[in-house]
């Protein structure tokens, strides 16, 4: 039995040393050109990343993205943070996303589609809006569900705190 334990211990140390992959699940999302993007590719190993899950039919999500669109240029300049807005619109409203974001004037945000909620499920998101702040390797540093006016200040504080580390 003891030998067995030792073997198990060594084995797990061995695996630990060789699995240095990103924390982000390897799921496929699409950009607004319909191209497939691997979720870990949103992370460059350095920059902080904001993932904001939303949908065109969700009112608080729209308010939240209005606020992010207003602020993200300043936040990025200050801390290098990147923001990816992940739409969970399904086949019903998926093709409305591109005209919607353009019509809304959200020029400062990057959009992706998660039509059958694979990425949403992998990030354990229950309802939209849901915003996560992650490090460059996909480790979750902060998250928040729902949106109320002023929540963006908390996110900004979290970004500043994390980028100072």
């Amino acid at each position: 039995m003891k030998k067995f334990i030792v073997v198990i211990l060594f084995l797990s140390i061995g695996i630990s040393l060789f699995s240095q992959s990103k924390n982000v699940p390897n799921v496929h999302i699409k950009n607004l050109n319909g191209e497939i993007v691997n979720a870990p590719d949103l992370f460059d190993g350095e920059s902080l990343v904001i993932l904001s899950f939303w949908a065109t039919w969700c009112k608080p999500c729209i308010k939240e993205l209005d606020a992010y669109n207003e602020n993200i240029v300043d936040w990025a300049e200050e801390t290098g943070v990147k923001l990816f807005a992940i739409s969970v619109d399904n086949a019903r409203s998926m093709s409305r996303v591109a005209p919607f974001v353009n019509g809304r004037g959200w020029e400062n945000l990057d959009f992706y589609l998660d039509a059958n909620e694979d990425f949403k499920r992998a990030m354990n998101v229950i309802n939209v809006p849901h915003t996560l702040l992650l490090d460059g390797n996909g480790k979750i540093l902060w998250q928040h569900t729902s949106y109320a006016e002023g929540d963006e200040y908390e996110l900004y504080e979290a970004i500043k705190e994390q980028s100072a580390k």
Binding site: P99, F100, V101, N102
Partner: peptide, 15 residues
């Protein structure tokens, strides 16, 4: 069938 056109500040959608 879906067709969309978008430009800065404008979105058009027909399905």
């Amino acid at each position: 069938l879906n067709t969309t056109y978008s430009a800065k500040g404008l979105g058009v959608y027909l399905s």
